[in-house]
């Protein structure tokens, strides 16, 4: 099984092919609906983003709170399609990898092909299992959003499948 280390270069993601299973290591940022809305507004207003997307990985998740003694609570993927409206803005700014579940629209795929990005799917509803692959979690931005805040996570051997590669090949197309 292939292992990838975040952050990633364009060459790194061009080497990934649809259907391939990969283990993700390194730093990933969480963001879902509300955080994407804020980041899109920041881009619109010409403000600074909470992190530079260049080479980074965004994981679409809103984790449950960490029980005492744990790094994080349950942390599986949310439905990626809700972020389709915002994703091209971040891909244009160098975002290399998105992790989530379910289909993406054509605009996202076009941006991925143009700028070199991949979309990885992980197992929806396996939040307890995936939490064990997260070894550190800190709030990176928008703490007032609670579960929708941006977290900086350190992941180890986080299991994913390449769902859409940087050439636009899509596992969901049947």
């Amino acid at each position: 099984m292939k292992t990838i280390q975040a952050p990633l270069s364009k060459e790194d993601v061009m080497g990934l092919t649809v259907g391939e299973t990969v283990l993700v290591n390194g730093t990933v940022y969480t963001a879902r609906d509300a955080a994407h809305q804020r980041m899109a507004a920041a881009i619109e207003a010409g403000d600074k983003l909470p992190f530079d997307p260049q080479g980074q990985v965004i994981y679409y998740t809103g984790p449950s709170p960490a029980p005492p003694g744990r790094v994080i609570g349950s942390a599986g993927p949310t439905t990626s399609g809700r972020m389709d409206i915002y994703a091209p803005l971040l891909i244009e700014r160098g975002l290399r990898v998105m992790i989530g579940k379910g289909e993406r629209n054509q605009a996202v795929k076009d941006a991925m092909c143009k700028h070199g990005a991949v979309y990885l799917a992980t197992v929806g509803g396996a939040g307890a299992y995936l939490a064990r692959r997260i070894i550190a979690a800190t709030v990176a931005a928008y703490p007032e959003l609670g579960p929708e805040a941006v977290y900086r996570l350190e992941v180890r051997d986080f299991p994913c499948i390449v769902a859409i590669d940087a050439r636009g090949n899509d596992i969901y197309e049947r």
């Binding site: 744990r70 599986g76 939040g127």
Partner: peptide, 13 residues
Amino acid sequence: IAAEDKVPLCQDT
């Protein structure tokens, strides 16, 4: 794992 770690099965509780 959810039962053992007392962590929700899914983060969307």
